[in-house]
Design a protein around this nucleic acid. Structure first.
Lengths: 112, 112
DNA sequence: CTCGTTCATTCCTTGACGGGAATATAACTG
DNA sequence: CAGTTATATTCCCGTCAAGGAATGAACGAG
């Protein structure tokens, strides 16, 4: 459930950009909107989605809302990725060989 | 660009289920539809998205299309995750402390 | 060649999402 | 209190993705 919100939040490129920006430090909504080339309402809405996904925390400072990245939910992504991580390490070449068992003419034939 | 297709493909829970299923071995469209409780056209369409994201390969075997997971694109996810991975390990508690850096009561104030 | 199987594709409808403009809200300033 | 700044929210609209039903296409069996 929360997983779904996380994936949905990260599905949007703008929101990934915001997350990446926040990785460099906390920012106000205005700064985020400027840096990511978003309108202010758009920035607010995207931040709301990120907030509801748990990826972002807000600290109210006078009139501004300083947003901080919370990387914790990304651990869920990491966990999701875990079962696959062994795959592309352990059998990438074997898999490629098996999948494409026809002569590939797009380059020098790799040594067996 | 290809990154966008990857995120978009994985954003859908059904497609994540298909990917998880394929982790257990290659399957035909019918098997996938049955296991993931999808209609046949829906399964075909989801598989097309996964194929276009590079997550799935097809091997035609008589009338059936046997689909195989290709975990390689997931390495991009892993790469994307890399800069954040250090964060939730290195400064999870420090971040929590910094988030509430109000000099209200100079002590552990675990009220919320 | 006809039929049955397996899958892909199209058409259509519906619902969710994103963007922009305008407006509301909250907090500081004087 | 009025005014300004910073942000949130609402409304409207265009777009896009997903689901289902029906149809089309490829292949093998007889």
């Amino acid at each position: 459930m929360s997983d779904a919100a996380l994936w949905a939040a990260l599905a949007d490129p703008h929101r990934r950009a915001v997350v990446a920006l926040l990785r460099t430090g906390p920012r106000t909504v205005g700064e985020i909107a400027l840096a990511c080339e978003l309108s202010q309402p758009s920035a607010s809405k995207h931040l709301k989605v990120l907030r509801e996904a748990g990826l972002v925390r807000v600290r109210q400072e006078a009139q501004r809302r300083v947003h901080t990245l919370d990387p914790a939910p990304l651990a869920a992504l990491d966990a999701w990725l875990a079962p696959y991580r062994k795959l592309w390490g352990e059998s990438l070449d074997a898999l490629g060989r098996r999948l494409d068992a026809r002569p590939d003419t797009t380059g020098p034939t790799p040594k067996d």
